[in-house]
């Protein structure tokens, strides 16, 4: 009765230990064996270190009877069996103890099948003893302990229980050296730095356009960040001239309220100047775009846009240039109609 109670209590505590360490999960055990799960490895090593320390203390206090300790001999079967055991543990992620504990875990049916497999394997053991016996005799047997913890078994070092305790302390220290896995926080996105704003005239560069509107303060627009937009703009680019459907209309500045200049408009104004220069008549000398020229006529992308009245330092009014390829088509239709009408 005493054996049953002690065995049941020990099994209860052992089951709780296996579950709390997460070893009932096959994937976690596999990751721990592959040295990928640091947390479980740390807890396992800590348990081993504490076990060794506690066992050494209890053996020294004579609570554990050293005569009942079983020293299993080291032979070739230990090596071969260890290889097969380890391969199966690494592949399936279970041990005989974790398989039994898995019956009480989340995966009930897998735990039952694992325990059933262990029972089946244990039932086959008497049948295969004839094969195992010659495999165990390949290497000489030796039942050794590291330190002198038994009265009659051979040992390697004369440290006794203190030496064994030091081994446990080393395992504990090794477990504390394994860093805990801390949750990785998402990197905070740094906001883009605001564009530099300066009132000093020394900060004006060559690629800077200063736009002034009547009654408003000058606005500095840095054109260096947007070099290619104006070139590909279908309204302002030369390729748009050949397109029949596009209507890049450049109108004279009017008295309507002007649009606030923006970077695009500044680029458009520059291109409009160059385009106006190209298409301006001979008697009118082209006016070079001054850096301080005001952008009173921002060229729109749409058909109708109001333009401001010309003021001091403003861009001179530009000729109306309308491309109406549809007019050509209309004239062609008229010609055809005339031809059809004539006998």
């Amino acid at each position: 009765m005493r054996e049953l109670l002690l065995g049941g209590g020990t099994g209860l505590v052992l089951g709780m230990a296996v579950q709390r360490m997460g070893l009932t999960c096959r994937e976690r055990l596999r990751q721990t064996a592959a040295l990928r799960d640091r947390q479980t490895l740390r807890v396992l090593l800590m348990s081993l270190g504490l076990s060794t320390l506690l066992a050494s203390l209890l053996m020294w206090l004579a609570v554990i009877d050293v005569d009942e300790l079983q020293v299993v001999p080291l032979h070739s079967g230990t090596v071969l069996g260890g290889l097969i055991f380890g391969a199966v543990v690494g592949w399936t992620g279970q041990t005989p103890g974790s398989a039994a504990a898995g019956v009480g875990g989340d995966r009930f049916f897998e735990g039952v099948c694992g325990a059933a497999g262990c029972l089946a394997g244990a039932a086959l053991l008497p049948a295969v003893q004839g094969v195992f016996t010659p495999l165990r005799s390949l290497l000489p047997e030796s039942g050794l302990t590291w330190f002198r913890v038994t009265l009659d078994k051979p040992y390697l070092f004369a440290g006794g229980f203190l030496g064994q305790g030091c081994v446990g302390f080393l395992l504990l220290t090794l477990s504390l050296c394994i860093r805990r896995e801390r949750p990785v926080s998402a990197p905070t996105e740094k906001p883009a730095p605001p564009p530099p704003v300066s009132d000093h005239p020394e900060d004006v560069r060559e690629d800077t356009v200063i736009a002034t509107l009547p009654g408003e303060e000058p606005v500095v627009v840095d054109m260096a960040e947007e070099p290619a937009e104006s070139e590909n703009d279908p309204v302002l680019g030369e390729s748009s001239v050949a397109e029949p459907e596009s209507t890049p209309i450049v109108e004279e500045p009017s008295a309507a309220e002007p649009e606030l200049p923006s970077a695009e408009n500044a680029g458009e104004a520059e291109e409009s100047l160059s385009f106006a220069e190209k298409n301006a008549p001979q008697d009118e000398p082209p006016q070079a775009a001054e850096p301080s020229a005001s952008l009173e006529d921002p060229l729109p992308s749409g058909p109708e846009t109001p333009s401001p009245t010309p003021g001091a330092g403003s861009i001179p009014p530009q000729k109306k240039q309308q491309f109406k390829p549809s007019a050509k088509k209309a004239s062609g239709k008229k010609k055809k109609a005339k031809k059809a009408a004539s006998p």
Binding site: R26, V72, P73, G77, T78, L80, G81, G82, I84, F85, V88, V89, W91, T92, Q94, T95, P96, G97, A99, G102, R107, F109, E110, G111, C113, G114, A115, A116, G117, C118, L119, A120, G121, A122, L124, L125, V128, Q129, F132, L135, R136
Partner: peptide
């Protein structure tokens, strides 16, 4: 998973019997 656990259990006990040592 059940099939793997059953087969794994059989081989685990056979290996433990060969080594005369389990977990």
């Amino acid at each position: 998973g059940c099939a793997v656990c059953f087969a794994g259990g059989v081989f685990l006990m056979l290996a433990a019997g060969l080594a005369e040592m389990g977990d």
